[in-house]
Design a protein around this nucleic acid. Structure first.
Length: 352
DNA sequence: GCCATTTGACCTTG
DNA sequence: CAAGGTCAAATGGC
């Protein structure tokens, strides 16, 4: 029974790999021949298919490894003679499993100022939608800490969380600690919204509110600095700049799945290798890797690439350590057309 | 009725 | 064991 499942998985893996190889061959022929028939769209389509193929394979491997982990854990649970393990239900088991990984999840802190010298800049809204799931009085802190998790946690299994706390010394400064990366499709919407914005600027068109990313609470902020915890390198943060590949030809759903699998796998790898693998790759040059295949080959794509490079430089210069690219990218892209949704509701974010 | 927030209890971590 | 973090029932708004 179990052997058949493994065999089927193996066959699926092989099929995907073979398909990927064939597609790569086709792409190679297209590139080498550079005939009129090998349009840019065709090449992009092939690249997307190849990437999709390999993502599927990696996802399968990921699932298999997760199953193995679960088996190992349940095995350990069986060995546990404590009374609690005997009554531990599925929920408790799941909770324990999640919590054990908690410390391995990458975490970084940002300090943002509600007001800047010039007025209002930036945005506490980092482009993602969050749901508050708790609030806690912190020892020695005047203000309670609010706990937020991704709105799509249940729907898409996105495990990104953050907690927000107002500074004791300066109430206009807020510390936002992010934990985990988004595996939901919000990242894609962010990307699309950014593209739309740039496109609008180029075409001198008016803003269409429908093109704005989903925003729960628009609060204007200026990031001050960011600290990293559990991050041996800046790679965790800068990898946000590596836009997941998106399929222009594939369906929306497939597109979403691609991003989902990308980020989910990165999270998984982060958890697995945060202690060993990541700490070894400290090369700064890798921080600025923006794979060509992740960008459109159109003129606009090149524009995006240039823009992103500029943004990275700006972020590096303005912050001694690093900053949340999600916030910065959004903020910088917003600078062209401020929509100052002010006044905002303080009590909503820092209710006590 | 659905969804987000609040809040006390519970769990994990150091 | 204390403090931080999360869960989940209760509550409120739309």
């Amino acid at each position: 029974m179990e052997g058949n499942i493994i065999k089927n998985e193996y066959i699926s893996l092989m099929n995907e790999l073979i398909q990927g190889k064939e597609l790569a061959k086709q792409l190679c022929n297209h590139v080498v021949s550079s005939s009129p028939s090998s349009s840019l769209e065709t090449n992009e389509f092939l690249i997307d298919k190849i990437l999709s193929s390999y993502e599927k394979v990696l996802n399968m491997l990921n699932l298999v490894s997760n199953v193995e982990d679960t088996k190992t854990n349940s095995g350990n649970m069986m060995m546990d003679e404590s009374p609690k393990s005997e009554v531990m239900d599925n929920n408790e088991f799941r909770h324990k499993d999640v919590s054990k990984k908690r410390k391995n999840i990458p975490r970084w802190t940002e300090q943002v100022n509600i007001f800047s010298r010039t007025g209002l800049e930036g945005s506490l809204d980092d482009g993602y939608s969050w749901r508050k799931y708790g609030q806690k009085d912190i020892l020695g802190a005047k203000f309670p800490r609010g706990y937020y998790r991704c709105t799509y946690r249940n729907v898409q299994g996105c495990l990104a969380t953050k907690h927000v706390q107002r500074s004791d010394e300066d109430p206009t400064i807020i510390e936002v600690t992010y934990r985990g990366r988004h595996t939901c499709t919000q990242a894609k919407h962010l990307k699309k919204a950014s593209k739309v914005k740039i496109g609008l600027e180029e075409n001198q068109l008016h803003n269409d509110p429908k093109n704005e990313p989903q925003q729960e609470k628009m609060v204007q902020f200026q990031p001050l600095e960011a600290n990293t915890e559990n991050l041996d390198t800046k790679e965790d943060i800068f990898s946000w700049f590596c836009f997941p590949s998106s399929s222009n030809n594939g369906s929306e759903n497939e597109d979403n799945n691609n991003i989902l699998s990308n980020t989910m796998m990165e999270n998984h790898l982060m958890e697995r290798f945060s202690d060993s693998f990541i700490s070894q790759s400290t090369s700064e040059s890798s921080l600025f890797c923006l794979p060509q295949c992740h960008l459109n080959n159109t003129g606009f794509g090149q524009h995006m690439q240039t823009l992103e490079s500029d943004i990275i430089e700006i972020v590096c210069e303005s912050n001694s350590v690093t900053n949340s690219p999600a916030l910065d990218l959004d903020m910088l892209l917003e600078k062209g057309d401020f929509d100052t949704d002010f006044p905002f509701n303080f009590s909503e974010y820092f209710s006590s």
